[in-house]
């Protein structure tokens, strides 16, 4: 009897320790990154780092402005492409598709979510880069290598599809059938029901899906690094090469050990990435939880 009690005590405490350790992981990442980036803040002010446009670590210049602009452009355009397509697809899957079609499409989306990001990058390299170079850019009368903001955005948009679609489909399914029936019974068409009832009822979940998609796109590293061009200059058009925060870390890590200041600058980039993704995720998850409570999921 005593041995069982002892085992119960030890087992429970072990589980507690593991749980606490993992909960602390989050803070340890934050403080380690913060601690490492203190060095750069000692020598440069935050405004200088955020708004100076010269990134030249060799000459002690660490202006992140071009990279921040690049990141916002790449992520923003990716979402502009991904959000309408994903929401319309989700509406189709949840409301319009016959059961048979739905059964085929759902696994497709799960598989798309499981494709490793480096494979997305490779496919973008093989297909999108020449496509943008030879088809899209001449259309606008612009010359480009194909390694540009637009290519990275399209790649990211495809990577974000499964996240937004599956979250939206889930939230559409959670809406009680009676709401739809009420709208249909007063003579609304199916699309009118979707537009005025489904969208309104699921608005918070759709917004949080977009936020979570943003978090994914903002932090995506490898695929973007392979196609964005990797040049730290403020991009002038969508067809010019650029750089994003996450991709910069990969591009620069091999020479970052050359100076402590450079290392510190990159850790600050990681810190910015961490904080931004964190804020978007916290907001997204928070809204999603509130939304789920609404229909008692």
């Amino acid at each position: 009897m005593n041995r069982r009690k002892l085992r119960d005590f030890l087992g429970t405490k072990l589980m507690l320790v593991v749980t606490v350790a993992v909960s602390l992981l989050f803070f340890s990442i934050f403080f380690l990154l913060l601690f490492k980036s203190l060095l750069i803040f000692e020598q440069h002010s935050l405004t200088e780092i955020l708004f100076s446009s010269s990134w030249n670590p060799g000459f002690n210049q660490f202006g992140l402005y071009p990279i921040i602009v690049g990141t916002i452009l790449v992520t923003g355009i990716a979402l502009i492409i991904a959000v309408p397509i994903s929401i319309l697809s989700a509406v189709y899957i949840a409301e319009y598709a016959p059961k048979k079609v739905r059964k085929v499409i759902r696994p497709f989306i799960d598989v798309l979510a499981g494709v490793p990001s480096v494979v997305y990058g490779l496919c973008a390299l093989l297909f999108l880069v020449p496509f943008v170079k030879d088809v899209v850019a001449p259309w606008f009368g612009i010359e480009t290598t194909g390694y540009c903001i637009l290519t990275a955005s399209i790649t990211l948009a495809i990577m974000v599809f499964p996240i937004i679609i599956s979250l939206c489909v889930e939230s559409f399914h959670a809406i009680p059938l009676s709401l739809r029936e009420a709208s249909l019974s007063v003579g609304a068409t199916k699309w009118e029901t979707v537009k005025k009832v489904i969208f309104r009822a699921s608005a918070p979940s759709v917004i949080s899906a977009v936020f979570l998609g943003f978090g994914r796109a903002f932090g995506e590293t490898i695929a973007v690094n392979m196609v964005v061009g990797g040049i730290t200059r403020t991009p002038s058009t969508l067809f010019s090469p650029g750089q994003t925060l996450a991709s910069l870390i990969v591009s620069a890590y091999s020479d970052m050990m050359s100076s402590p200041l450079y290392e510190s600058a990159l850790m600050m980039v990681a810190l910015i990435l961490f904080i931004v993704v964190l804020l978007f995720n916290i907001f997204g998850i928070f809204v999603l939880r509130r939304a789920n409570k609404r229909w008692n999921v």
Partner: peptide, 9 residues
């Protein structure tokens, strides 16, 4: 939230 943190971090 940890789930959403980019793997590069």
């Amino acid at each position: 939230i940890l789930w959403g943190i980019p793997s590069i971090i």
